[in-house]
C-alpha cells in the first residue's frame, strides 16, 4: 500500500501509517492530513514538528498523556492539555498527529 506525490512513492501500512520514517516530507504530511480531513495550521505544524523531534530523540511515539505533558513544558500550559490537542486532531493526537508526522502508532494505543 502507499501513495504517490510528484513521482515520489510513499509506502504505508494497512492503517495508513508511513512504513519508512525517512520517506516523510511536508508533501506527505499534507497528503496524510487531507486523508484525515485535518486542515493544517501553524498550530498543527507545531505539534507535528514536536512529535518528530520527540521520535528522533527517543525512538518512540509518545503516549497521549506523555505528549500533553511534554507539549505543556515546551509550548506553554494553554497547549499542554488534551482538549487543545483533540481540537487540533479530533480523532486523537496519537491516531492523527502521529500519522501525519510520519511516526509509527504509539506503543500501548489500541
Amino acid at each position: 500500500m502507499g501513495f504517490e506525490i510528484n513521482g515520489k512513492t510513499y509506502e504505508t501500512d494497512e492503517e495508513g501509517y508511513l512504513v519508512n520514517l525517512g520517506e516523510w516530507d511536508e508533501a506527505a504530511a499534507k497528503y496524510l492530513a487531507v486523508e484525515e480531513k485535518v486542515e493544517l495550521t501553524e498550530n498543527h505544524w507545531e505539534v507535528i514538528n514536536f512529535l518528530r523531534e520527540y521520535y528522533n530523540d527517543y525512538q518512540i511515539a509518545p503516549a497521549v498523556r506523555v505528549l500533553t505533558k511534554a507539549i505543556g513544558k515546551k509550548l506553554g500550559a494553554e497547549k499542554g492539555n488534551s482538549k487543545y490537542l483533540y481540537e487540533l486532531f479530533p480523532y486523537g493526537p496519537a491516531k492523527q498527529a502521529c500519522k501525519i508526522a510520519g511516526l509509527p502508532k504509539p506503543t500501548g494505543c489500541i
Binding site: 497521549v64 480523532y91 486523537g92 496519537a94 491516531k95 500501548g108 494505543c109 489500541i110
Partner: peptide
C-alpha cells in the same frame, strides 16, 4: 490504553 481514555481519567 485507548485513545478515548488516554490515561487521563
Amino acid at each position: 490504553m485507548t485513545e478515548s481514555t488516554g490515561g487521563i481519567d
